[in-house]
């Protein structure tokens, strides 16, 4: 009896030993052309929509365009090259930094001052970065060209959007683009299945290689195509946007009085499915970076 009891106690220890560490994503890139153009923009017409968990009727009284996918590594590398050449950003101590004019500081409890200064955009020595820099030029790592740009701060995301003629979406703009006007909880409809989006333990082909935390999927991956036998469901938002739920959280542009946090939407590959509901929010310090956080931009038609 005592021996059985001892074995029972030791079982978790053995189990831990069996929990193999995840392989680094960089070691096993899978390349897929999804056929979705990351340079594409979708028009979101002015009008009312139902916002948030409690379906608050909200009006956006202007048309705007939003990127069909999140910004890719290839797009961000191109931007870095152009922005460096134009002097909009610079490299200091292995970091790409850029000027930010600062937030209005109100001195609220827990509020931190975001002062006018050079703020980091990306760190060149970040092991999670999927970009290469040879001292002159940035490029995307092989196999990661059409994956979302991650490990980028809110400052880096904002800088990209503004340099390319747009800006980060407000939370309202982001949610309307994700949800449309029918009050659906997920960008593609009312239910979530593993074939709709990249989320924690959604059993996609990347999870089979690198473990449950998985890896980012190429932008527009969930478009009904089959990849190495993995059948996806075409899961655009009502306005034709891809990856508005899952894959990576997306920085939004709002700055709220009394808080220095920047908000993110959409849920990521590291979150359970319910976090992909369109009203779910996340936030962090604007210089936070993560392998699970990317962004997309908006612009006004004609800009």
């Amino acid at each position: 009896m005592k021996r059985t009891f001892l074995w029972l106690l030791l079982l978790p220890v053995f189990a831990i030993g069996c929990a193999a560490p995840a392989t680094s994503p960089a070691e096993s890139p899978l390349t897929f052309d999804t056929g979705i153009n990351p340079e594409g923009w979708a028009l979101v017409p002015a009008g009312e929509f139902l916002r948030g968990l409690h379906d608050l009727e909200t009006v956006v009284d202007y048309d705007y365009e939003i990127m069909i996918t999140t910004v890719t590594n290839a797009q961000y590398a191109n931007y870095l090259n152009e922005a460096l050449a134009a002097g909009a950003i610079k490299i200091v101590d292995d970091q790409v930094v850029g000027y930010y004019p600062g937030d209005e500081f109100h001195g609220y409890r827990h509020e931190e001052e975001i002062a006018a200064d050079d703020w980091p955009h990306i760190s060149l020595d970040d092991p999670g970065l999927r970009l290469r820099y040879d001292g002159k030029t940035f490029s995307a790592m092989n196999g990661y060209e059409n994956r979302p740009m991650v490990q980028v701060t809110w400052f880096g995301a904002r800088s990209y959007c503004e340099f390319t003629g747009g800006r980060l979406p407000t939370e309202v703009e982001w949610e309307k683009a994700a949800r449309g006007t029918d009050g659906r909880p997920f960008p593609w409809g009312h239910e979530i299945q593993p074939e709709n989006a990249n989320y924690y333990s959604s059993h996609d082909i990347f999870e089979k290689i690198v473990g449950k935390l998985g890896d980012t999927t190429p932008v527009g991956f969930y478009n009904g195509n089959t990849y190495d036998g993995f059948q996806t469901i075409d899961s655009p938002s009502p306005y034709g946007l891809y990856d508005m739920g899952g894959n990576v959280w997306q920085w939004t542009g709002d700055i709220y009085e009394g808080a220095h946090y920047r908000y993110m939407r959409g849920g990521s590959k590291a979150d359970y499915g319910y976090n992909l509901r369109v009203w779910t929010r996340n936030n962090s310090h604007p210089d936070y970076v993560s392998p699970n956080v990317g962004f997309r931009c908006v612009r006004l038609p004609g800009d």
Binding site: L11, A19, P127, G128, G211, K212, L213
Partner: peptide, 22 residues
């Protein structure tokens, strides 16, 4: 870090499940 957390997530989740199951 987030990028390296999977082994610790796997281990702790497993222990939580085993403990609660028992």
């Amino acid at each position: 870090s987030e990028a390296e957390q999977q082994p610790i997530v796997n281990m702790t989740m497993l222990l939580i499940e085993i403990g609660l199951a028992l």
